[in-house]
Nucleic acid binder design. Structure first.
Lengths: 109, 109
DNA sequence: GACTTCCATCGCCGATCGGCGATTAACGAT
DNA sequence: ATCGTTAATCGCCGATCGGCGATGGAAGTC
């Protein structure tokens, strides 16, 4: 029981993985990660081909774990990838798979 | 729409993330990844402190995506981490976060 | 054979999920 | 003030999840 991953850490990582537990959300995050500029919701809707309300709900889930960040632009809202997650999320995957924690970065703010 | 991640790839990755979308399963995988030898179900039950049926169900989910492998040993069943996942799962996290696919390893058999 | 041990499976429960259409709210333009 | 436009929220649905106790089956022990 000594080398059992701390429950709070496990819970945080699980919340990250749960945010990507849906193929549409995986596509949205990967899509935003590949864009140079922040994208409006309508553009994401066009890209993934789901209803606007559905995409909005997915974006809310992704924003709650701060995988994506939003900024209001006039009438619209632009979403972009959170650069901190680009490094800290894969490192979480490393930790789960047994590699020693790579220094800091545990919390991607 | 061009740089939208392929749906099938997104689905496979989502199934991996969904397998770790629960803190108990994160603990189980991390636990097995840190063990030198395969562990019996009873040992895992003792480590995580859940009912035996619950742990067995979690192990089934983890085995379905081949994060863990099982081998019968006499009366018992020993579970161990799938070494292929140690590299291929974090690389999936990299792909989602926009890093170019690191060569092969896409499928951790 | 009878008995124990180990684990998978079943059935049940409340809770959460993923999808959608409809509505509401905020903003820009006229 | 009245329109469009954009996006968040609401309410509903069926489906899945996570937990448990109980049952069942396979392998070891006596």
């Amino acid at each position: 029981m000594a080398d059992l991953l701390d429950r709070e850490v496990a819970q945080r990582y699980a919340s990250w993985f749960r945010a990507l537990a849906d193929p549409s959300r995986v596509q949205i995050v990967a899509y935003l990660a590949r864009q140079a500029r922040p994208m409006a919701v309508g553009e994401i809707v066009a890209a993934v081909g789901l209803a606007q309300s559905t995409v909005s709900q997915h974006l809310k889930i992704l924003a709650e774990v701060r995988f994506v960040l939003a900024e209001p632009v006039g009438n619209a809202r632009h979403y972009r990838i959170n650069d901190n997650c680009i490094t800290c999320f894969p490192s979480a995957a490393d930790v789960v798979m047994g590699k020693p924690a790579p220094a800091v970065a545990e919390v991607c703010s």
